[in-house]
């Protein structure tokens, strides 16, 4: 089994410990081969834990940082209705971050440590949130393309082999479909509006198309962790497979919008029965991931500011709770 390849049993383990490790591994392998779920207190290979921790915490950070590009437009939403919707959506992103931090915590990482890593610029999050939102139509394009890609990615994660992660994803997916629909509606209204509004919508789609395709991660032949994640039933489909499915859906939907996708190479390959798209700029992807995207430093700085400015609230809540407890014990 592939999962054993990464599992090197340290030599200094006592015979009993080695035996326990072997039994744990056997149990783990059986659960995975039965397509059942691993729960927090189960034995799991160190590499499985590490992989999950990396993936879930990055996912949580993405939700938290993902609040920023949209919060940018709350005060300038074109109507009270749109403002309420946008606030609800940003609130959902915060909620999704918290569900995921909880899931990551079950693997033994403290939430404070994850927060620290994020504001210290040590943690990664999805490259997509390092692009600026320069027009109202970007709210539409983010909902339709970015949340659409996220849904494509996340629906299979509801069946991830790690129980707490799968459960968090079920909750998240239920809420994401509202996000995508509201984005689609924003674009549809702009597209049916004045020529300038339609142009604004098209411009947003043009800018968000390629970054949203890159959200699925590097091509399969350049994605070293994918194979192992699939063997562990964390991932169910490869990056390219999901990307191809997504392109197929967008091709249909963009027609309803009366807009076009900025990709002349999109075609359905009759042989492979898969959708194909034009070349993507993977150097740009790597640059953004490495922290050299248009908004990286701004996003992390903003998060740090919010965290530090909120310190007094957290402290006051603790002080208040302590005072209440003292009062109760005195009474």
């Amino acid at each position: 089994m592939a999962s054993q390849n990464l599992q090197s049993v340290p030599a200094e383990l006592s015979p009993e410990e080695q035996e326990r490790e072997a039994a744990g591994q056997a149990y783990f392998d059986r659960i995975i081969s039965e397509d059942s779920r691993i729960e927090p207190r189960d034995w799991m290979p160190a590499a499985y834990r590490k992989t999950l921790l990396r993936q879930i915490s990055q996912h949580a950070h993405s939700e938290i940082i993902g609040m920023q590009p949209e919060a940018n437009w709350i005060t300038r939403a074109p109507s009270l209705k749109r403002k309420s919707i946008l606030m609800a959506k940003v609130q959902d992103e915060a909620g999704h971050g918290l569900y995921l931090y909880s899931a990551a915590e079950t693997l033994g990482q403290s939430r404070d440590q994850m927060m620290e890593d994020l504001i210290a610029g040590k943690a990664r999050y999805s490259s997509i949130f390092n692009y600026p939102t320069i027009s109202w139509a970007d709210m539409g394009a983010i909902g339709w393309l970015v949340d659409g890609a996220a849904i494509c990615n996340q629906v299979p994660l509801c069946r991830a082999s790690y129980g707490p992660y799968g459960r968090a994803m079920v909750r998240i997916c239920k809420e994401e479909s509202f996000h995508q629909r509201q984005g689609f509606e924003i674009l549809l209204e702009l597209s049916n509006g004045t020529p300038a509004q339609k142009q604004m919508a098209q411009d947003a789609v043009n800018r968000w198309y390629a970054p949203s395709l890159m959200m699925f991660g590097p091509p399969d032949d350049d994605s070293p962790n994918s194979k192992q994640s699939m063997a562990w039933n964390i991932k169910r489909f490869s990056n390219d497979e999901l990307r191809s499915r997504f392109v197929g859906m967008m091709v249909e939907q963009v027609r309803v919008l009366g807009l076009t996708l900025p990709d002349k190479d999109i075609r359905f390959n009759e042989e492979t029965k898969k959708w194909e798209h034009g070349p993507l700029d993977w150097n740009e992807f790597k640059e953004v991931l490495a922290g050299r995207g248009p908004c990286n430093s701004q996003r992390v700085e903003r998060r740090r500011e919010a965290h530090e400015n909120g310190a007094w609230v957290r402290e006051a809540a603790v002080a208040y709770a302590r005072k209440q407890a003292q009062k109760e014990s005195a009474a």
């Binding site: 918290l98 569900y99 909880s102 459960r167 968090a168 208040y320 709770a321 209440q324």
Partner: peptide, 8 residues
């Protein structure tokens, strides 16, 4: 439903 952090 899940878990969370709170002071009380």
């Amino acid at each position: 439903a899940g878990s969370l952090h709170a002071p009380d």
